[in-house]
Design a binder for these strands. Structure first.
Lengths: 201, 201
DNA sequence: GTCTATAGCCTGATAGAC
DNA sequence: GTCTATCAGGCTATAGAC
């Protein structure tokens, strides 16, 4: 009974810490984030925070690895057996919605990568690279079959990442320039036009 | 005579500090950068560094404001009297070359903006916004004249920023995924295809 | 103008009471 | 499991000798 209660508290605190860490790391990057901020955001004391994780590095690593799977899910869904252009468009829209609904996740990775990805470089070179290679193979097949414009499949994927994540990572600039809340509906119309035109064989 | 010599030393040190600060701030962001790093990169002692600038904030601010003009130059060149598609393509290629030749500048701003642009938000809301508004006016005119596809001009500009700066800001990811040095020639071919297809009326 | 030395603060992490 | 108290180290910035 006591053990169940304890476990429930632990799970709740784990979740609080995770949310707080995502908030703070995505806003300030690894170096800019402080344990004080994370602890107070989670409603815990700093030593209590370090009871659950041994170090700042461990918290950051836990958040990154847990979210990487979520973050790469849309690309995994690109289906070899679907219609090329509709499959790519679906990926674009899914990524755009991810930028809208999960901006903290986007900025978490953006912060890490723009500073040279010191803590996830090896994952990028293995997991991400293998996933992209598999999808590049599919794209090359579609191009060979004449169902897609003759474009570099790597740069196509990079373009989708940059165009969609821009609305999350550089949102403050988008809002500063337009003077309005970022319109993801407008972005969707724009990207739909862009990729339909560009991908047609 | 002594004054001339002194001034020459000052100018040299100013230049050394500027280069070092750009190096360090662009690699680690404001919070991640340390005066120790900047001083040793510049070949100066830390107190000597602070003889030239009163604070870390002042160094960062000096670098940002000095580079902002350079950074926005390509957009300023967009010429109302030129051919719409060639003018936009020229801007795209100029921005891509800027990402290739000035990656530190790109990352300096990326670091600042991804963390909410606390130190340059007001500039984004005034100078950058006014510049973009002027160019949006030109783009709208071209669209009205039927010389350009009916697209949202703001999102067109955002797309150029994100697609080109991606190769500088997320270079480590591009290299991790492709396993090679980033090919700006390939990127140029890709972007040329993309914008010609997309912009045709 | 440039240095050594150091103040004063903040940060990550630990000790030990409860 | 959670707290208060605290340490050791790194940080920005300053004082003062030369």
């Amino acid at each position: 009974m006591t053990e169940y209660a304890t476990t429930r508290i632990q799970r709740k605190n784990q979740a609080l810490i995770f949310e707080a860490a995502l908030d703070v790391f995505s806003s300030f990057g690894f170096r800019g984030a402080t344990l004080d901020q994370i602890a107070s955001t989670a409603g815990l004391s700093k030593p209590n925070l370090l009871y659950y994780y041994p170090s700042k590095e461990a918290i950051h690593s836990a958040v990154l690895t847990k979210l990487l799977h979520t973050w790469l899910a849309p690309l995994r869904e690109l289906d070899e057996n679907g219609d090329p252009i509709e499959e790519i468009l679906l990926y674009v829209i899914n990524k755009l919605h991810a930028a809208r609904d999960l901006p903290r996740e986007s900025r978490l990775f953006a912060n890490e990568i723009v500073q040279g990805a010191p803590r996830i470089k090896s994952i990028l070179e293995t997991d991400l690279r293998h996933l992209v290679e598999d999808k590049v193979r599919i794209l090359r097949k579609w191009i060979k079959q004449g169902r897609l414009a003759k474009i570099d499949p790597y740069h196509l994927i990079f373009s989708i990442w940059s165009l969609t994540q821009h609305y999350a990572d550089f949102d403050v600039q988008v809002q500063a320039v337009t003077g309005q809340e970022t319109s993801f509906d407008e972005a969707e119309v724009f990207l739909n036009h862009l990729y339909r035109r560009m991908l047609a064989p």
